[in-house]
Computed example of a mutant assay.
Amino acid sequence: MKNELVQWIIRFIKGIFIGSGAILPGVSGGALAAVFGIYEEIIQFISNIKKEFKSKLLFFLPVGLGGLFGIIVLAYPIESLLRNHPVFILLFFMGCIFGTVPLLYRKAKLHGQKKWHVYLTAFTAILSFILLVAANTFLDVQVAQTPLTWIMVGFIFASGFIVPGLSPSNFLIYMNLYEPLTRGISQLDLTILLPVGTGALICVVALSKLVNHLMNLYYTTIFHFILGIVIASTVIIFPSQNQWSQLSLYGLFFSVALFIIGLLLGLWMGRLELKHKPEE
């Protein structure tokens, strides 16, 4: 019973990170799900939803509740912190993600590893970093806010969960839709939430089976690819020189402390995962 309660709490915390990470620019909800060791299970569940429905629903209930908490409750605070104290929140998330990377690496080589898999991770990390820097530098599009636009936003947002490494928040920033979305979520604006939910559902139905099929065929390759994406997307959110320059000496020490706290939290969650999850 105690182990079940610990598992429930762990999955709830994972859901919070996955949900809040999904709205943090540069971070992918799907990549975080992979980091926390539940991406494969999520894809299998939504692509074969009738199979063991009750047991899987109960398993993912805390993840879903944590995700909703992370998205709805934390959407506005995260957006506000990004505007007012970006270094604090970015370093904390960087620490959390880096702390769980060893668990993702263990997951990636679960079924064996060849030297070219390591090269793939390195190549993916470098290429992804270059593409993200280019996108952050050159992309800036103004998109009208219509119901069809919000359906598209929902599709993009959900794709960040289905396709690991894809950061939907970055795309929304490029289209100047990020702040309207986070504001709409925090205010529970149904004119935004309903079409966004529709687009997300379309994305899940359209892509989950394909991704699950690819996972079954190329598990090791895909997870090493995900690992490279995670490394690049984590490094890319490192605060800019301008953001660092706004910090006082106290703020600098506090930022480093938050990074260390996030790192220790990530390592702790990784150890809990290994301790309470049966060996595969």
Rank of each mutant, 00 (worst) to 15 (best):
V6A: 13
F12W: 08
K14N: 11
G15K: 00
I16T: 11
F17Y: 08
I18W: 00
S20F: 09
G21L: 12
G21H: 07
A22L: 15
G29I: 04
G29T: 07
G30N: 01
A31E: 00
A33N: 06
A34I: 13
S47R: 01
N48L: 07
E52R: 02
E52C: 03
E52I: 07
F53R: 01
L57V: 11
L58F: 13
V63L: 09
L65Q: 09
G66S: 09
G66D: 01
F69R: 00
G70F: 09
A75K: 04
E79F: 11
S80K: 13
N84F: 14
L90A: 12
L91E: 06
L91I: 14
F92Y: 12
F93H: 02
F98N: 03
Q113M: 08
K115L: 13
W116I: 07
V118Y: 09
T124H: 06
I126R: 04
S128W: 01
I130H: 01
L131V: 10
V141G: 04
Q145F: 08
T146I: 03
G154N: 03
F155D: 12
A158M: 15
I162G: 04
I162F: 02
G165T: 03
P168E: 14
S169G: 11
N170G: 03
L172S: 02
Y178I: 11
R183K: 12
S186P: 05
Q187A: 06
L188F: 10
D189R: 09
I192W: 03
L193K: 03
G197C: 08
G197D: 03
T198F: 10
T198V: 14
G199K: 03
G199P: 00
A200L: 13
I202P: 02
L207T: 10
L207W: 09
K209S: 10
V211P: 06
L214N: 11
Y218F: 15
T220S: 11
T221M: 07
I222M: 11
H224L: 06
H224W: 05
F225I: 06
L227K: 03
G228A: 07
I229M: 11
I231D: 01
I231P: 02
I237T: 02
S240T: 11
S240Q: 06
Q241K: 06
Q241G: 15
Y250T: 15
G251K: 01
F253A: 15
F254G: 00
S255N: 13
V256D: 09
V256G: 04
I260F: 05
I261L: 12
L264G: 07
L264W: 08
L267G: 05
W268Q: 05
E273N: 13
E279K: 08
E279V: 12
E280K: 03
